[in-house]
């Protein structure tokens, strides 16, 4: 799994988080997080529950607002237009445009329950990209093929297992041809025997060179697939570096304590 990141990331990073802070009702969740993810890199975000790692991920596509700091994805400042010394909040339509090139996969899948697998995958290309239906269908089938579910195209989410639903959710995100994919604990809601199929799809995606930021508890997956790892503790990125180093020889005591507990 040694992939050459240097090829793709010669200039600006794909995702850049600068000094991000956020509080929920005066309780600080993020206290100045800095993070850089290069193009084609797979970055695993680790941390205890409540450490702010999901919030950090959700800020990246503006599902969550933040109090200060910046997020730059593909060289574009997310959510604001900078003019002089001011940041003007973008209109919803502009934010929607920014989001459309960032794929997101949720812990609870969030497939549209009233649509079949194929309709789920076609929806955004048709409604957002204005792709003709026939073209979107063809593309949708290709995406379902990619996650190994072309044969379940006409199934409703309720007729699919959790693992299958999550794979459709990945296909749905891929159909928008995203430059970055965000995964928010994609296997946490799955029965243990279904985790493997989802990780398999993600492994393939990583091998294809997709830029991925993955919030996960799957240390084995992180070891195998991730290029870099970040450990978030109490709203700060306390450790960030090559995955092998963070996961095997952590420097920070809280990273060490966390890994000991998880690997036990």
């Amino acid at each position: 799994m040694e992939r050459t990141i240097e090829n793709e990331s010669t200039s600006a990073p794909a995702v850049q988080v600068v000094n991000l802070t956020k509080a929920f009702h005066q309780t600080p969740v993020l206290k100045g997080v800095n993070l850089e993810v290069a193009g084609g890199e797979v970055c695993c975000v680790l941390g205890r529950s409540g450490s702010g790692k999901s919030t950090l991920l959700r800020c990246m596509n503006l599902l969550e607002s933040f109090d200060s700091g910046r997020i730059i994805v593909n060289g574009e400042l997310m959510g604001y237009r900078e003019k002089g010394r001011r940041l003007y909040t973008l209109k919803f339509a502009e934010i929607a445009r920014q989001r459309s090139s960032i794929g997101m996969v949720f812990q609870r899948f969030n497939l549209f329950a009233h649509m079949t697998a194929l309709e789920n995958v076609m929806e955004a290309p048709v409604r957002v990209r204005r792709l003709p239906k026939a073209e979107a269908r063809e593309r949708g089938m290709a995406m379902l093929e990619r996650v190994g579910l072309a044969n379940r195209a006409s199934a409703y989410p309720s007729q699919l297992s959790g693992g299958q639903q999550q794979r459709v959710a990945i296909a749905r995100a891929l159909a928008m041809d995203p430059k970055v994919m965000l995964f928010d604990e994609p296997t946490s809601a799955l029965d243990p025997e279904l985790v493997g199929e989802v990780l398999g799809v993600m492994r393939q995606l990583a091998a294809d060179g997709m830029t991925m930021i993955v919030v996960t508890h799957e240390i084995a997956f992180a070891r195998e697939v991730a290029d870099t790892a970040v450990f978030i503790d109490a709203g700060l990125a306390v450790e960030h570096g090559p995955a092998r180093q963070v996961l095997s020889q952590p420097e920070h005591p809280s990273t060490r304590a966390f890994l000991e507990r998880v690997l036990k």
Binding site: N61, L63, F92, A93, A96, R97, Q98, R99, S100, S101, I102, G103, M104, F106, R108, N110, L111, F112, A113, E123, A124, R127, V128, A169, R172, A173, M176
Partner: peptide
């Protein structure tokens, strides 16, 4: 569920589209 709206927004759908379609 709130997640349905979030999934639509994350795909780049606008508010009105999300309301009518999802």
């Amino acid at each position: 569920e709130r997640g349905q709206t979030e999934a639509a927004y994350a795909l780049g759908m606008r508010r009105a589209t999300t309301t009518w379609r999802i």
